[in-house]
């Protein structure tokens, strides 16, 4: 955030619209789902940015855009000074090793016909690493993520969910990336195993200076792992702040409702819960003005008419609301 070092990643005005098929024989389009609709943020080297929000808010789409698994509709993604959103596949390929993604479902993201060793060697082979170097790295990676050398010859189905996620992490690390999108990496795991994987991700970050975008619906996990947290609602960031500030003094009414809804394992603590009425509106036709106004207790005329922009204060807190808390 300091002016001295430019951020590793700078996202500016990122947009992703998914066209809705319709018309004659489904050949035309009738509107678009505005999954990500003008999102901007930066991530420094070695930093973890948490990205939270409910289903359909656009958080996973944002993650997939950052590693160019999806083509952005508009906007810039500056990675270490290069706008990777503007690059063609050929120009992008040598850069891809620097940014990786870990998906939610370790059952779906590992090829069931490949042995662990081959899963880990594949990216290295594509990157043109020598065979001996590949072998050395496989051994080191397995050790790094807490698997035994003997695991190299096994197939994914021989592992538990937590171990599979370790394999997926090892694969993401093969080419020594600088940035990893972690898309709900522990959501499919039981709590006791979840804690093992979270600790592993933090250790690796410290050792290798990795930056993470940590996408999750689990607020307590994000509270634990992130440095700063962005809250998304209907394709927009509504609040972004250093995590302690965000969790201790949320300013946006949506963030406040979201935090108050999290059940905590402390029966003695009875909290005031802010109930949101109704459901999230259709992202193909978001409400005019502030997108949250249809469910907001504070909504006034200005909220129905004017779309609030994300305003940053001097302490690095940003909020998009006409009537934010101080």
């Amino acid at each position: 955030m300091s002016a001295a070092s430019p951020p590793l990643l700078a996202v500016d005005g990122l947009v992703k619209h998914f066209p809705i098929r319709g018309g004659f024989m489904g050949l035309g389009t009738k509107g678009a789902v505005r999954a990500v609709d003008g999102v901007s943020f930066i991530i420094a080297a070695g930093e973890t940015m948490g990205l939270v929000g409910e289903s359909g808010c656009g958080k996973s789409t944002t993650g997939r855009l950052l590693v160019r698994l999806l083509e952005p509709t508009a906007g810039r993604i500056q990675f270490d000074g290069t706008d990777i959103a503007a690059l063609g596949p050929r120009q992008l390929r040598p850069l891809r090793r620097h940014f990786q993604i870990i998906a939610q479902d370790p059952y779906g993201s590992l090829n069931p016909r490949m042995r662990v060793e081959d899963i880990l060697r594949e990216p290295m082979r594509i990157a043109g690493l020598k065979d001996t170097e590949q072998g050395e790295r496989v051994a080191r990676l397995l050790d790094h993520v807490g698997l035994a050398a003997g695991h190299a010859t096994r197939f994914p189905h021989e592992f538990s969910g937590g171990q599979r996620q370790r394999i997926a992490i090892a694969r993401a690390l093969t080419l020594r990336p600088r940035f990893i999108v972690c898309d709900e990496p522990v959501s499919a795991l039981d709590v006791s195993v979840q804690a093992q994987i979270i600790n592993l991700l933090r250790e690796l970050q410290r050792e290798m200076g990795l930056a993470y975008l940590f996408v999750s619906h689990d607020l307590s996990v994000v509270r634990h792992i992130a440095d700063r947290v962005a809250v998304m609602y209907l394709g927009r960031i509504v609040e972004l702040a250093p995590k302690r500030r965000l969790f201790a003094a949320p300013r946006h009414p949506y963030t406040q409702a979201l935090l108050s809804a999290v059940p905590v394992p402390r029966p003695a603590r009875k909290r005031q819960r802010i109930m949101l009425a109704g459901d999230v509106p259709n992202p193909a036709a978001p409400p005019p003005g502030c997108r949250f106004h249809t469910r907001c207790a504070r909504a006034a005329d200005v909220c129905r008419a004017q779309d609030p922009s994300l305003q940053q204060d001097t302490e690095g807190r940003a909020v998009a609301c006409h009537f934010p808390d101080p």
Partner: peptide, 24 residues
């Protein structure tokens, strides 16, 4: 006890979470 300790707390900063080693 282990289950409760492996949930990240909402009001406190921890360096690392307590884990239950191994699997079911």
């Amino acid at each position: 006890e282990g289950l409760l300790a492996s949930i990240p707390p909402m009001e406190e900063d921890l360096d690392s979470l307590r884990t239950i080693e191994g699997t079911v």
